[in-house]
């Protein structure tokens, strides 16, 4: 079973072979409120670790989505673009954002495990 890791920008990442599935955490959706718009990176494009790779908007404001690792976008989740409320409903599973063929496996080591992330999320929430 592959371990899920977490970034300080509140993304989760699940690695299977050399393909990583990335989304935003439940904690992130709770901070954002109702998500009403999602924009994803283009399939085939390359994204760099900590670079922007999409946007989510709530009724209140727009927020960038960052990628916690570098790689080529091999798939995107059109379902959340068509119905962004799915992101609030199931953020850490069916409402994933994009899949990357990752370049450098060692980038995973810089990320947090679940316990560390939960602690981080608790400390940083207002």
């Amino acid at each position: 079973m592959s371990e899920v890791k977490y970034s300080k920008e509140h993304e989760w990442i699940k690695l299977e072979g050399d393909v990583a599935t990335i989304g935003i955490t439940k904690h992130a959706t709770e901070m954002l409120g109702d998500i009403v718009f999602a924009e994803l990176p283009e399939k085939g494009s390359n994204v760099e670790k900590d670079g922007t790779a999409g946007v989510v908007e709530s009724t209140k404001a727009a927020s960038d989505v960052y990628t916690p690792v570098s790689g080529e976008v091999v798939d995107t989740n059109q379902a959340i673009v068509d119905d962004p409320s799915k992101i609030n409903q199931d953020p850490e599973d069916s409402a994933w954002f994009f899949k990357l063929k990752i370049k450098d496996q060692s980038e995973m080591d810089t990320l947090m495990n679940k316990d560390d992330y939960d602690k981080f999320a608790k400390e940083t929430s207002v």
Binding site: G33, D34, V36, S58, T59, K60, S85
Partner: peptide, 10 residues
């Protein structure tokens, strides 16, 4: 109050 527990859309 900007919102309550149910959120802006609800």
């Amino acid at each position: 109050p900007i919102q309550y527990s149910e959120g802006i859309v609800e």
